[in-house]
Amino acid sequence: MHGPVSAAWLLVALCAATGSYCLLRMRSAVEEQRRAAGGEALMGFGMAAMAVPAAVFTPPGWAWPLYAAVFGAAALRALWSARSGPHHLHHLVGTAAMIYMSLAMTASPAAHHHGHSGAGVPLVTGTLLLYFTGYVLLSGARLVPAAATAGRTVPVRWGDRPELARACRLSMGIGMVAMLLTL
């Protein structure tokens, strides 16, 4: 992604930490939590890899289509999971955004800072920005009441804490907004 190097490194750190926590969540005793955590770990690490500043590492030309293929497979899995409930649709939108950004990076040379040549924000980018901005605002609002459940008496494992899972999703949403802004 293109943008300030310091912001890119912060995004790499945020996404890698989120992906790492999602790997921890994959050890949950709750099957649905494990499934969601696997997809979220892929998103976190994929976003971290995409956010590495181009000044430090420019991936070879074949890497972006490979990213698109990996997230295409993840999108098919999310589409299959969406039949069990609408809460999986967010994963589908997230993987579609990753495919879109991968394809935009394929078409954009490393020195080019905007894939749209200054002609305004492309419709797909704008739509994804609106979606993820709304998602971040809604997730942030849902995170606030989760702190009220901190007085529970049953010890909960780190991978099963709902407020941490929400914070994980919130941070990935913020990361997605940042990546879309620099596209």
Rank of each mutant, 00 (worst) to 15 (best):
S108G: 05
V136E: 08
A16M: 04
A36E: 03
G39T: 04
A146Y: 10
P4F: 10
A63H: 06
V93W: 00
G120V: 08
T133G: 05
P155G: 11
F57C: 15
F132R: 01
A82G: 04
G159L: 01
A13Q: 09
P86V: 05
P65S: 14
T18W: 03
A7E: 07
L180Q: 00
L170K: 02
M101G: 00
P86D: 07
A8K: 01
M179A: 03
L138Y: 15
G38N: 06
Y67M: 13
F71Y: 02
P59Q: 13
G175F: 00
A68D: 11
L128Q: 06
H88L: 04
G61H: 09
G94L: 06
R169W: 07
L180R: 00
R166Q: 14
W9P: 02
R35C: 10
G151M: 14
L11K: 03
M179W: 00
L42I: 09
S108R: 11
M43A: 12
L170D: 01
G94H: 02
L123C: 09
L137D: 07
R157F: 15
L137A: 08
C15L: 06
L138E: 14
M98E: 00
M1E: 06
R157A: 15
F57V: 14
R27F: 13
P109M: 03
D160E: 12
A16P: 01
L129K: 03
T149M: 10
M43G: 02
H88I: 07
A37M: 10
S6P: 09
M26L: 10
V154E: 14
P59W: 07
P53H: 11
E40K: 12
S171T: 13
A48N: 04
T153G: 13
L164G: 00
P59F: 13
L170N: 00
L143Y: 03
A119P: 09
Y131F: 09
R142M: 13
T58N: 15
A48G: 02
E31N: 14
H90I: 12
A54R: 11
I174D: 00
G126S: 14
A29E: 11
A54V: 11
A37Q: 05
G134N: 06
A165N: 02
A36K: 07
S102C: 02
L79D: 10
V144E: 13
I174L: 14
M105S: 06
T18L: 04
E31H: 13
P59C: 08
G72Y: 01
V144C: 11
E163G: 12
A55V: 15
H112Q: 14
R25L: 11
R157Q: 14
V30G: 08
A54N: 12
R152V: 15
P162W: 13
P4C: 09
L181S: 15
M1D: 06
W80L: 03
A104P: 04
A146H: 04
A73N: 10
A36G: 11
H88S: 01
G134V: 06
A75I: 05
A97Y: 01
W158V: 15
G19F: 01
G120D: 05
G44Q: 00
I99W: 08
M26N: 09
A96P: 03
P65G: 06
P122G: 07
A78N: 05
C15Y: 01
T127Y: 09
H113A: 15
R27K: 06
G120L: 04
Y21L: 04
V121Y: 08
S84A: 15
S171N: 11
C22D: 11
